[in-house]
Write a protein that binds this DNA or RNA. Structure first.
Lengths: 340, 340
DNA sequence: CCTGGCACTCCGAGCGGGTGAGTGCCAGGC
DNA sequence: GCCTGGCACTCACCCGCTCGGAGTGCCAGG
């Protein structure tokens, strides 16, 4: 039906204008700035319907309309074309990420880049340990009974953990243990590490068994559990610029961002093969994010998912642009990590 | 002189009241809340002098007085006794920090603890690499010509760096190289690492020399340079609570906190044996910190300085309390790191 | 079904007076 | 010589008010 079609055009125009001007948009302004081919009065009728359907609201009588979460949702789902990045932006991505030295470097550059491209808060998850495989295990004796276990994954991530053994450890035993652990775990997915422990215990020389038990317990405990997943956050300064757009204050949002768990849960929900995931306002389960939108996507090398990254910002954001930026950055990061 | 003495009491009272009430403080309120033994009129005279001397100012005529940076400075230097921490606070420190698993864990707990104790933004520097010594070097071959170098310091810090070698590397050579590097660098201060390279190159078997050169160059380049010092930041949500106390917006401050270099420079100026360093408002060189105060101190194990930690907040802060908290936490962190 | 016209609502800016906190100054007292 | 009470003065702030303007909803006519 032609009417429905135009009504959607009106909604799209409202979202676009509101995002760019930051003022509630009225029927007159809409008629002027867009070629809708109808008069303000007609637009008003459409707006009344859109409001009744819950896509827009007015902050108060005699103000223009503002999209609701539901309105943004419709916009994202059906009304927006993905905005291709400009050449300059593509250049910026390459320039920013090339020449990174190690994983930490790649990720912190990524988070800065994303924040800069989108003017939002950027978050990047470290490659999940549970999906990584062991490349190498290193043991370093710290004190008589203390071992520092260093795990190097095939994604370049390096994790450490101090293990307290009940007894003093001999120098030679450390070397034996290292060899044992490496031959058992090398190449193994971390998710499977737990199941290899019994077998390893069987084959280990008796005098090493307590040690093997302690160290593998530590490995399984800290490295397989999802709690160890880490997050890099950047661009929080961008929140201050739009402070007025958040209900109340920035406080709960900043808290949530520090409380990495909350954001991690959001970001790691992206296993849905490659599609950019958008969560708008109330769609976010956590209360602190109720006034914010999250745009996230998984990144990985080839077909393999490594982790997620995305941005957090006000519901009033440029979704097409941000979705494009998030997707492009994720792709590029995937490439870079595939090389190393 | 008795007058000067009383005038200082007045200044102290003004600082205390202003910090606790957050309102410009007037002569009448001062006379009521403090036993200065004189009438408001007399206090007014003292205030006039204090204002002339630049210790206090009034936001506008007919408002109470507010301390200036200079006033806070005098307060910190001469008028404040270090407030001992409450038993509950000491308990909190121990409870919070005990049971940390590794360096990363210790530092991120520390930063949370500090933020919670002081209600300010907390910053903790990783133990400086330049003052650390090599405990172990690990080499892992990533691809034909790529080596992942993992450095483990005696402070428990683990750093990684990807090294691109010009040529493919043999498996056996990796082991030789590892042994060579470890025997050369083990126990050496990182600051001295550079000077050991020539000697190492001499003693190395000829076919390994290009490799040794590449790897040691990477080590020296990234690990000895101060740029690699890292920072943990926490409690930025506390800024939002006092947003109004910062000139303009939080933006520049948040930016400075992400721009770790700025804060690092501040925090690492603390080599002055154990004393808590307070920088108030304009005393901070960096413009973004001009409206903020920084309380910092070095931490270390025994006599050995490892790094710095501190807090950043509005100039209107409870200096005695924050100084006590910063000092106490630094001590405790030092102890913990000494054990591991 | 679209359009122009019209009355209506309500936010926000601007104005003016009253209030109160706080000051500076002065003359008198210990 | 210093402290004190008294007093006039100055503003920031709050309150209520008005007024203009933007935007709406509705209606009758094309």
């Amino acid at each position: 039906m032609a009417h429905d079609e135009r009504r959607l055009q009106v909604l799209r125009a409202i979202v676009q204008d509101y995002v760019s001007t930051n003022d509630p948009v009225g029927s007159k302004a809409l008629a002027e700035r867009h070629d809708l081919g109808v008069s303000p009065a007609t637009i008003r009728n459409d707006m009344a319907v859109l409001e009744e359907q819950g896509y827009i609201t007015q902050p108060h009588t005699s103000a223009g309309r503002v999209p609701t979460d539901k309105g943004y949702r419709l916009f994202v789902d059906r009304l927006s074309a993905v905005k291709p990045l400009s050449v300059a932006e593509r250049r910026a991505i390459e320039k920013f990420l090339d020449g990174a030295l190690d994983l930490h470097d790649v990720l912190s550059r990524t988070v800065r880049l994303l924040a800069q491209l989108t003017h939002q808060v950027a978050v990047v998850q470290y490659p999940t340990l549970s999906r990584s495989a062991v490349r190498h295990l290193e043991l370093v004796q710290v004190a008589g009974s203390r071992l520092l276990v260093v795990l190097i994954t095939d994604t370049g991530r390096v994790e450490q953990r101090l293990v307290e053994c009940a007894v003093d450890v001999e120098r030679d035993d450390v070397a034996d243990l290292r060899a044992l652990l490496n031959s058992a775990f090398a190449g193994a997915k971390l998710a499977d590490a737990g199941s290899k422990v019994p077998e390893l215990l069987d084959t280990a020389p008796p005098h090493l068994r307590p040690l093997v038990a302690a160290v593998s317990a530590a490995l399984v405990e800290t490295l397989v559990e999802p709690g160890e997943d880490r997050l890099v956050v950047g661009g929080t300064a961008n929140l201050a610029r739009e402070a007025m757009h958040f209900p109340g204050s920035l406080r709960p949002l900043l808290e949530a961002l520090e409380e990495q768990v909350v954001v991690l849960r959001l970001i790691s929900e992206v296993d849905t093969g490659g599609a950019v995931l958008v969560r708008i306002g109330e769609e976010n389960a956590h209360e602190a994010l109720t006034g914010a939108s999250v745009v996230s996507v998984g990144y990985g090398s080839g077909t393999r998912a490594l982790g997620g990254l995305g941005i957090v910002g006000p519901t009033r954001m440029d979704y097409p642009m941000n979705m494009a930026a998030v997707r492009a950055v994720a792709r590029y990061v995937g490439q870079i990590l595939a090389e190393s």
